[in-house]
Amino acid sequence: MTRPEPATAVGTGGVKRGLADMLKGGVIMDVVTPEQAKIAEDAGAVAVMALERVPADIRADGGVARMSDPDMVRGIVESVSIPVMAKARIGHFVEAQVLQSLGVDYVDESEVLTPADEAHHIDKWAFTVPFVCGATNLGEALRRLGEGAAMIRSKGEAGTGNVVEATRHMRAIRSEIRALSRMDPQELYAAAKELRAPVALVQEVAESGRLPVVLFTAGGIATPADAAMMMQLGAEGVFVGSGIFKSGDPARRAEAIVRATTFHDDPDVIAKVSAGLGEAMVGRTTADMPEHERLATRGW
């Protein structure tokens, strides 16, 4: 174990955001067992998300969804060589402390689990382990960055196999960034108020035309074409939750989604890898979904 001297530092913004940079162009897959983690790694996943139940099952089972059993997280950490992420409930800083102590590489403060705090997200600056957080729009993304998140993903509507919400979130984030870039600097204070986001971050985004961290997509991605569309909409990588292990042939689908992410701008490749994949997960529409079943509205 390295104990760096003052000249060296762990847990800096650079190393937290840096790991997300290394995952760019890749696919992060939800897994619930070490065996699934190995299938994901074999298929070319850049990381796995260790959780007890995939979102589709969390929806079906109901009840309170919490951090996974430490034994299960440890089992997955030991079974693969790629980074392992795990989910903590929104605001549940002790679950996050536990995950950090287990040696996970990234904590997802996730709306897929039942929120533990209705007002406050985790103070992510207090941790050495980096955090990824979901966002439905730019203001939400910047609030999470203000709290110390080092990576942002769209929320989508997890566990539905329906990409429409992720599309909405990706388009919202990108178009709000473009709107900021066109503004007069004097207008950014009001924009920050409107977005309910820190002024300094709003100014940074306006200046650079991008989020200061990596932006992935998540929620409802079920096919290679879904993944490629998200990449063309400006995602820098893809989380796939229930879409792989709720499908007919997980290993092949996983590999196909990885390939479609790398070659997201090449329809010939996407056509090739999409052929003969077997059953995709059973999807459900979100437009008629009752409010209490929606996960994307969790988080504040």
Binding site: M1, T2, A7, T8, V15, G18, G103, V104, D105, P130
Partner: peptide
Amino acid sequence: GRQVASFESD
């Protein structure tokens, strides 16, 4: 080590 041991240095 794992990510928590990631660091920067001169």
